[in-house]
Nucleic acid binder design. Structure first.
Lengths: 198, 198
DNA sequence: ACTGAAACGGAACGCTGCTCCATTTAGTAT
DNA sequence: ATACTAAATGGAGCAGCGTTCCGTTTCAGT
């Protein structure tokens, strides 16, 4: 997580310096290409942008999911870490859940095709799916449990199902004024809310 | 809609008989392949299954969407026609809406990858998306309007957004016991419902 | 039967994912 | 400083798929 500055511990020892450098170069290039062409961009294009061969990319990131994961690692982390913070600071657990979902949705919709990739049943993204789940599912579960505990929402909803549903709602063409996933997610949360008078 | 029997009007005059036959052959083959390999199955495979050349398929169905549309035409029609019928027969417009959505969801989840294709932003499925919308959006709008009119649900939800949301929720790996789109859709409908005391 | 046009099949092209290996280069021991 | 070794590299090569193009076959009307 820490910066790989000269004073800090070596980020991954036993790697040659040029390999380290190339790794960063590829990450930067991939990030740029992802913005313009989505996370489905041809490896060739990313390699060209980075000025390296394709094999270099495959060596550093064996699957496409590894590359995507690495590019968005910081943002996934930020989202994961926001969970407990929101829970501590919000007016109610339900509010915390809502705000966290907002963060999550913003993350998904601002990255071209990321939601699509996440829900794709293609093997090439299996690891991406797994990483998101590993990192964010516990956070979501904690928020959900707290909201149930507080009586804000009805019990019985599985975190996995909720996360996939939210991810699914974010899939598809971007910037369609007729479709804003946030509105539907708000509806979903509404349905989750327990009637005020129990 | 009617069968193309000998007594009925010619289904599409000015087509050669072998072309007519091949069209049917391709449709049958495509239906079979779609079941096993999803609507993304290679054209080559469908051609092989049908025992025809690829060009024959492209000539009859210029885009993949045309083929998919043709294969599922009957079921799309059935879904469209069920709308008014349900509205007339159900206990309330909201019930009709719920039942119609059930039909729609069943349709989507039983066809491998159909929901994925529908929401894909790839051009190759644009026509499929358009056809679904042309045929089903008015039906959904009618049900939605009736439910709003009856005071069952809050106003303000756009039919397009609802349909895309439902479609989106059906996207992804099939038969995952941890994820049943129907549960989330039920939640969505719950959120749509107006509180009983206005 | 004859013939023009419709329909056909599959080769061919372009694009992509992924792998393999000859070559280059960084780091180290002398 | 030089030589050596293993890590790292780059791009050619193979396979799969979508789509088009064209020489050949088959239908249908005379």
């Amino acid at each position: 997580m820490a910066a790989e500055g000269p004073a800090g511990g070596s980020p991954s020892r036993s790697k040659r310096a040029d390999a380290q450098r190339n790794r960063e170069t590829v990450l930067t290039a991939a990030a740029e290409v992802f913005v313009t062409s989505g996370v489905d961009a041809p490896i060739r294009r990313i390699a060209a942008q980075a000025g390296v061969g394709m094999a270099t990319i495959y060596r550093h990131f064996p699957t496409r999911a590894d590359l995507v994961t690495a590019v968005y690692r910081h943002q996934i982390e930020a989202c994961a870490e926001a969970g407990p913070r929101l829970l501590a600071g919000a007016a109610s657990p339900f509010d915390a859940l809502r705000q966290w979902i907002d963060l999550f949705v913003d993350f998904l919709v601002t990255k071209h095709g990321l939601a699509d990739a996440l829900q794709s049943d293609s093997d090439r993204f299996a690891a991406l799916h797994a990483h998101f789940l590993d990192r964010l599912l516990p956070v979501c579960a904690q928020l959900l449990d707290a909201a149930v505990e507080a009586g804000d929402i009805r019990p019985g909803t599985q975190p996995y199902e909720l996360m996939r549903g939210i991810g699914n709602l974010c899939v598809g063409r971007d910037n369609d004024p007729r479709y804003d996933p946030r509105r539907l997610i708000a509806l979903l949360l509404q349905g989750l809310q327990r009637p005020h008078t129990s």
